[in-house]
Simulated assay, not measured.
Amino acid sequence: MSEGYPIKAVLIAGPTASGKSALALELALNAGGIVINADSMQVYRDLRIITARPMPDEEARVPHRLYGHVDAAVNFSAGAWMADAAKALEEVKAGGPLPIFVGGTGLYFKTLTAGLSAVPPIPAEVREAVRARLERNGVEALHAELARRDPGAAERLNLRDRTRIARALEVIEATGRSLLDWHHEGQPPLLRKESFRAVFLAPERDELYARIDARFDAMLGAGALDEVERLAARGLDPLLPAMKAHGVPALIRHLRGELSLEEAAAIGRADTRHYAKRQFTWFRHQLPEFEWVKPGEAGGWLAAAMSAEQHSS
């Protein structure tokens, strides 16, 4: 288990509205695959339309896993997803269908290919106190504090790396243990580096943003507002992940009479575009093993992935 599953897998990532699901479905149909969700919002059963989850007819064509299996009242985590992904992989461990992971949540792909740290959640008050000291005293002072309390972690970090210095200090302050200790106790990756092929669909920005806008309007036409109204009626904590899905907060404000539908839609479209921009940045820096291709080139990449899988079996 610690060395990962001895299987082949295909990983399809990309920003929202880049055509990932269609590519995964095509591959699954042609290669006899099982599609496994790697999108943190598509896990919620309450949100099919507003998260662009595969429709029932698509799910009926090939096996799909980890879609809509979590209630919106649950604060679903990367660790919980990793456990569910491990169960899905068990189904194909012994020569079963090709596992095809598809989604836009970088952290899910990170846990899949690099494992998961065992660091417990950091209390909000600790995080806020450390960030306040960072803003007040500067990164040099924070690094000096870290060097006193956790010399090993401080030695490994660039003196100007504000984010990682703050993170290491939060961990030692909240747990009394070094971040390095927690990392040593983390969960190993589910897939070995040589056991998967990974692609990131990278459309031109203008084209992508136009697709995002058009899709958001299409989702409204398909009943997204009714879906959000049913979710809002549950009276859930607004800080839950499902309550913060792109478009949901603005549409809830519309339902309360605070915004017109067009104002809410404009916010939803803009939030989704901003998220897509962050996805580009995250994958570029965090998952360099993903091969970037234009959606128009995805067919060629798909054929190559299928050929590689056939030759390896």
Rank of each mutant, 00 (worst) to 15 (best):
L240G: 06
R164A: 05
D84W: 02
M41I: 00
S40G: 07
E258G: 09
E258V: 08
A222R: 15
L220F: 08
V70K: 06
A210Q: 06
Q286V: 08
E194Y: 00
K8W: 12
E155I: 03
M41R: 13
D237L: 11
P54L: 10
A304P: 00
A264K: 04
R148C: 00
S312D: 12
E194C: 06
H285P: 00
A202S: 15
R48F: 00
V171S: 07
A60W: 03
E170K: 13
A86G: 14
Q42A: 15
F283Y: 14
G186E: 01
A305S: 02
L201V: 10
I165M: 07
K110L: 11
G268S: 14
M306L: 15
A132E: 15
R160E: 13
A233G: 13
R167N: 10
P123L: 14
V102I: 07
R197Y: 06
Q310C: 00
R211Y: 00
R177L: 14
H254S: 01
R127Y: 00
S21Q: 05
L225V: 15
T16K: 11
S307N: 15
R167C: 12
V199G: 02
A198L: 13
H246C: 11
D213T: 12
R149F: 01
V62A: 12
F290M: 13
L208Y: 10
V62M: 12
H183K: 13
R164T: 13
I122Y: 04
G68V: 05
G4W: 07
F283S: 09
E204L: 07
Q279A: 12
R284N: 10
Q42N: 14
D226L: 04
A166K: 06
V102W: 00
E229D: 07
A73V: 13
I7A: 02
R278K: 14
A242Y: 12
V228K: 08
R192E: 12
L251E: 08
G176F: 01
V139G: 03
R48D: 05
L287G: 04
I36Y: 07
D217A: 11
W292E: 15
A153S: 15
A266H: 13
